[in-house]
Design a protein around this nucleic acid. Structure first.
Lengths: 124, 124
DNA sequence: CTTGACTATGACAGTGATGTCATAGTTTAT
DNA sequence: ATAAACTATGACATCACTGTCATAGTCAAG
């Protein structure tokens, strides 16, 4: 699918989509005419990117977490040996685990605040 | 207390503290010499601001919530603020939970991929 | 073929939070 | 009294994300 459809379906501007690709958050095959050819998975991927940005992560951090090199839903495994791939995956796994820890802390804080606010409102 | 003490105790730069005041997130009395005179509550307030910023809110949104409009020493109209806050937190919590789910899925895929690669390497 | 709707890239602007520097006034310690 | 350590403001820089514009190539419909 072409870029405007992704933009329409995600609500993200074409400009931003191209920027995400530039930052390697998003991979797009190219048609013969040079047009980007996005795949169905791009929709959810873009939504994921948006949510991360909303949570204050930078594109660099997002790229580390779901960068489109490696386990991305795109074919074209690089001509690289399994050992290197394995190391890459393990690296990413560490990143993911680190990020999960961050989110868990956030979750705890939010839950506490919500409970506290609800008690406070109930008491009135 | 003066600005550097707030900076020291919160870990937030003096520059940022002045910026928060400019954006009306923080109110500071002034001493006769023009120095800011922050009160004890500023510490927690600054930590709160930091948390909001960490959650991806802008100073403008934070200003709406913390409502430090002017130098009024009167208590805030709490109920409205708290309800808004609660909705906001709940929203954020949903985002965080969705992201944790995404990361968990990612984690699973990575783990599988790693195990598969390890089997593959072992077999050689 | 022409027109209009897409697409591409590149450059520049703008915003938000922060850093840094210049300049100047104030307090404190020696 | 002078130096060191604060403080103040204002200006400019930076970084990341996004908008917008200029210019040009592509495609489908009339």
């Amino acid at each position: 699918m072409r870029i405007s459809e992704v933009a329409r379906r995600t609500g993200v501007s074409i400009r931003s989509l191209r920027y995400y690709e530039e930052k390697r958050l998003l991979c797009a095959r190219r048609l013969e005419n040079g047009y980007r050819d996005l795949d169905e998975g791009a929709i959810e991927r873009v939504q994921t990117i948006q949510m991360y940005l909303g949570l204050g992560l930078t594109t660099e951090q997002i790229e580390e977490i779901l960068g489109c090199t490696g386990f991305s839903p795109f074919p074209q495994p690089l001509p690289v040996c399994e050992e290197v791939l394995l190391a890459l995956y393990q690296d990413k796994l560490q990143d993911v685990e680190h990020q999960m820890a961050v989110l868990t802390a956030l979750h705890t804080r939010l839950t506490e605040r919500i409970a506290s606010l609800q008690r406070q409102l109930q008491a009135e």
